[in-house]
Design a protein around this nucleic acid. Structure first.
Lengths: 132, 132
DNA sequence: CAGATATGAAACGTTTTGGTTTCACTTCGT
DNA sequence: ACGAAGTGAAACCAAAACGTTTCATATCTG
């Protein structure tokens, strides 16, 4: 019942590179169709159809303002993707362990270079409790 | 040069439900084509083509053993997906805002319980500057 | 009101996709 | 050696995906 009858699911919606770009554009700000399509080599109508698909997947919400329709990002459907991904994260453990050993080895000379890796590891660990 | 010329990328590979099921099956064990296709209503050849696509995306590795080809999961390409997803996590503001309010309210009695949450928030904030 | 702007819907065309059936090749077991 | 088992490649098909052009409609703006 709670299902919004997703004619297009998230996996399918993000499969197309153009749609991923659209999502990225909408990350910063709400935008009408024409403004969006201005950034692509394809027609406005084509972009409109991509937006429809994103909308079907729930990744985008629309709001009519006068004669224009403004689209904004809604990331909540990405939760499903995150959960799907989480299942496979337990298979990364070998790699993670290796990376962790490297990061934590105090003999690593360049200290600054590790920041990213450390943040990355922390991030992964933070996510883990959701699954398993 | 480093690019493995991904004729099919990860996003595309996981877009199909059948392929996601195949991945899930391979999570537990290495399997030959026939064994895999036994779990699907489609032909063995069809499954074989799905495996090809997964292989193109790097999600599956194959190993010939006698007359059979055993496929096994390789999750490393999912890292790209994870990174893509991570970008959008900062938009899960509702959850973050709620957590932040909770953490910053000084009337919270149990001080110890906040440690994890604080680290969590700090981590997120530190990640932000990457984009924008 | 009249023209410009913003957009979705419809009709249509081309390419991909997901599937099938058939065929050829290699390897295993007797 | 010979038939069975395990696969991939090829040819073919229907449906979906992605794009375009054209048309209709609603809303601003002067």
């Amino acid at each position: 019942m709670a299902e919004p009858s997703p004619k297009h699911d998230v996996f399918q919606a993000i499969a197309d590179p153009t749609r991923r770009q659209v999502l990225q554009m909408l990350a910063d700000q709400e935008m009408p169709v024409t403004a969006i399509s201005g950034h692509f080599p394809i027609s406005r109508t084509a972009v409109s159809k991509h937006l429809r698909i994103l909308s079907d997947a729930g990744l985008v919400k629309e709001r009519k303002v006068g004669r224009e329709t403004r689209y904004r990002l809604d990331t909540s459907p990405l939760l499903e993707l995150k959960r799907w991904l989480a299942f496979y994260e337990r298979f990364w453990e070998n790699k993670l362990a290796a990376l962790q050993r490297f990061v934590e080895s105090d003999d690593s000379a360049g200290a600054g270079a590790d920041a990213g890796a450390k943040a990355f590891l922390a991030l992964l660990e933070r996510d883990d409790p959701a699954e398993r």
